[in-house]
Simulated scan of single mutants.
Amino acid sequence: MRIARLKSVDLHWREDGDPDGIPVVFANSLGTDLRLWDKVIALLPSSGVRLIRFDKRGHGLSSCPKPPYSMEALCEDTEEFLQEIGVTGCIFVGLSIGGCIGQLLASRRPELVKGLVLSNSAAKMGTPQMWEERIERIRATGIDSMADAILERWFGEAFRHSDEAVLWRHMLIRTPADGYIGCSAALAASDLTASTSELALPVLGIGGEHDLASPSSVVRATTELVPGSRFVEIATAGHLPCVERPEIYADHLMTFLKENLHVGTV
């Protein structure tokens, strides 16, 4: 197990692939940990790319400071983490809040990010009122009380009733309440429209046909803020298409690496 001991937080992380390859950094969604990427990582090449993933603060095996958090703090964690492990010029793949972190990171530190994948993410996710209501309910009754409703937003019906969906429910309800609340507060206060509109780098947007958390229309609109970007929608998938349709997800990612970033080894 690897832990990056940073100024304000300890981040759990993992590395696969080629340690000398082009770095591809994966940032997971609210209520999940770095296992979110297991299926996709298994489909990516073992040479030419350095595959890095981490648990953001308050999630997985990372430490959990008291909430609230800000998007700036989550971005600063990521900046410091990448510097700690010697990464510059990465392809940053962020899902949901992970995509928000990626947008802000690319704006603040363009030398760290040379390509961005915005998966099921947006410049502004939800409304402050929605997030405040969720925070208050979790404080009152815990994440478990909202788990079924959250999974309805995450997955299509067929997957939601599969045995595998149990893993994701358990992962969700085992997320520390402080971590979930802290990241929810960051989303409530965040609108990245202005800074994302000024980005100038290759961007791929990925939506899920049945995503109720970040509908494809919202993901597409954010993607189109960046000139020259491309958007794809994955059919029959919800908010976590890397889980439901990993083969298609990996294909889109590898195409992006080849065509937009000239990563010929994949």
Rank of each mutant, 00 (worst) to 15 (best):
F231A: 07
G142K: 04
V219R: 08
T88S: 11
S29M: 01
N120P: 00
A42C: 02
H59T: 07
T88A: 06
E259I: 13
L187P: 01
D55V: 11
C183W: 03
D251T: 14
A186F: 07
V113T: 11
L261H: 02
D211F: 06
T222F: 13
R109E: 09
K7F: 04
V40K: 08
D20H: 12
W168F: 15
L199Q: 05
L51T: 02
L11I: 11
L74G: 10
C64F: 00
L74I: 08
S8E: 14
G60T: 06
A106G: 03
C90I: 08
G58R: 09
D163Q: 14
V226H: 04
V243G: 03
P67L: 12
G115V: 06
S229L: 03
A158L: 09
G86I: 10
C183Y: 02
H262R: 14
E76N: 06
L225Q: 01
E233N: 14
L95M: 04
E111N: 12
T236I: 10
E136Q: 14
W154I: 09
Y69V: 08
L240T: 10
T222Q: 12
M130Q: 07
P45G: 07
P202L: 13
W131F: 08
P110Y: 10
I173Q: 05
A221F: 09
L95K: 00
T255R: 14
L74E: 10
K114F: 03
I173F: 04
S46C: 00
E72W: 13
F231Y: 14
C100A: 11
L201R: 06
R230M: 05
A186W: 08
L199H: 04
V263I: 13
